[in-house]
Design a protein around this nucleic acid. Structure first.
Length: 418
RNA sequence: GGGGGAGUGUCCCGAGCGGCAAAGGGGGCGGACUGUAAAUCCGCUGGCUAUGCCUUCGUAGGUUCGAGUCCUACCUCCCCCA
């Protein structure tokens, strides 16, 4: 099935968001007929979501944009259990405090993509701790647990690696899929949710929710999953030079976020424009037709669009401008990541190794800084460091009052005297 | 409950006669080539106040001049029998 009647599925399809749908025709019909409420769950395993979760947020964004109601579900309850799907081993259990702190930190990003409120298609943010934490064990077993066949649960791909390798899958983790299934039913009762979306690794969990719904008398529920995204060369999305590509600005600044997208592989540009920006399809088609080195201009537009959605248009353009000055003019820009150092300390002189390792954090240790010097990877004000004993002093300050430290060609940090 | 096997450089996989900061690979980082791309080639990939010192091979002890390597106990996982 390639033609959809509903705006929502049509848009998702043409932009490449769809991996699997449980009952395409039925779901399309539902979306064409009424305002639908759908949700995606986010587990609070870190203080911020990262680029890997952006697809999910975009799904909710399009849902709202095509006139329906998105719910972002925070896993304050399920987070206490930990999703074992496709994991090799159990995650460390998180404390309630950590979970709550992570949730409040994660929450902030959503407002950039969704309009929250009380209206018909206004988004809702809900925490499943609300109903999961107060469940009564015996009642839950009798009302919900009796509908689950362990035989069937064991057959899911999501737990297969564990079982095949005969690695332990604790009873605690085993319950995750039951809780997630229960969430779906509960959300249907409370908010008339009909559809759960998620990454392709969530398919089994979502289907469980649909089955549970059948047995507990909900209307027909639906599942829709997005493809597991990898780059053209097969790497997972969301990893960058210094680790994960976090969405929270305090964990990764707009400039570095912009850089991540600026550096995607050529082969990914067309696909990513559709997935990560809201540019119209005809413009994307035009941009995707560009070949050769001109694709660099397309990448800049792409990076700016993605950054603008998350950090705002102004921050995105500042990041683009900072990159232009840094890479195209070889100059410096105040929008590069900046570390402040006391003027007195700078006057006294800072060893290059310490400057790169301790101050700028561009390398992990003095030892690594030393190795990079040997390999010609460190630069101070664009001059390659050749002597590991060199000292940076006030004389190295530029007219703007900063010293530019670079690791390789792409990573720059400014030391600013204060 | 009985018998057998395994846990290695905190990214992963993985070799390791008692002299080991520990082979090899993947990944990552840097360099060259380019277009801030990919592919390819080269180098690096425990820490430090550094011709030396310190910390690493599941955990804790022991044997030894010296232990990843041998012994004991414990933990975890796997296989076979019950």
């Amino acid at each position: 099935m390639t033609t959809y009647r509903s705006d929502f599925l049509h848009t998702l399809h043409e932009r490449g968001y769809i991996h699997q749908v449980s009952d395409e025709a039925g779901l399309d019909d539902l979306f064409a007929r009424e305002t639908v409420t759908a949700y995606i769950g986010f587990d609070p395993t870190a203080p911020s979501l990262h680029a890997g979760g952006l697809i999910q947020i975009m799904l909710l964004h399009w849902l709202q944009k095509t006139g329906h109601r998105p719910i972002s579900l925070m896993g304050g309850g399920t987070g206490m259990v930990g999703d074992p799907s496709f994991k090799d081993e159990a995650r460390q259990l998180m404390t309630v405090d950590t979970i709550e702190a992570n949730i409040s930190s994660i929450k902030r990003v959503f407002a950039n993509y969704l309009a929250y409120g009380e209206g018909k298609s206004d988004a809702l943010m809900i925490n499943n701790a609300k109903w999961l934490r107060e469940l009564n064990y015996l009642e839950f077993l009798r009302d919900v647990g009796r509908h689950f066949s362990v035989n069937r649960m064991l057959s899911f791909d999501s737990v297969k690696t564990r079982l095949d390798r005969e690695q332990s899958l604790s009873f605690l983790e085993f319950n995750y899929m039951i809780l997630q299934a229960y969430d779906f039913v509960e959300l249907n009762k409370r908010y008339d949710v009909r559809l759960q979306m998620g990454g392709s690794d969530q398919w089994g969990n979502i289907i469980n929710g649909i089955d549970l719904g059948h047995r507990m008398g909900t209307p027909q529920l639906y599942a829709l999953t997005s493809p597991l995204l990898t780059t053209a060369s097969g790497a997972k999305m969301g990893k960058s030079v210094n680790g994960a590509v976090w969405l929270n600005p305090d964990m990764l600044g707009p400039y570095e976020f912009w850089q991540y997208w600026r550096n995607v592989e050529d082969a990914d540009v067309g696909r990513f424009l559709k997935l990560y920006t809201t540019l119209p399809m005809d413009e994307i088609a035009r941009l995707s037709a560009v070949g050769g080195s001109e694709i660099n201009d397309v990448k800049k537009i792409f990076a700016t669009e993605v950054t603008a959605m998350l950090h705002g248009r102004a921050a995105a353009e500042a990041a683009a401008e900072a990159a232009r000055r840094t890479f195209e003019e070889g100059g410096i820009s105040a929008d590069l990541p900046t570390v402040e150092v006391p003027a007195a300390e700078l006057e006294a002189g800072i060893g290059v190794l310490a400057a790169f390792a301790e101050k700028a954090g561009l390398v992990a240790s003095n030892g690594e800084a030393r190795r990079q010097v040997k390999g010609g990877g460190l630069k101070v004000n664009d001059a390659t460091v050749t002597d590991e004993k060199a000292v940076i002093t006030g004389r190295d300050l530029s007219a703007e009052g900063v010293v530019k430290l670079s690791l390789g060609k792409k990573k720059h940090v400014l030391l600013k005297a204060v």
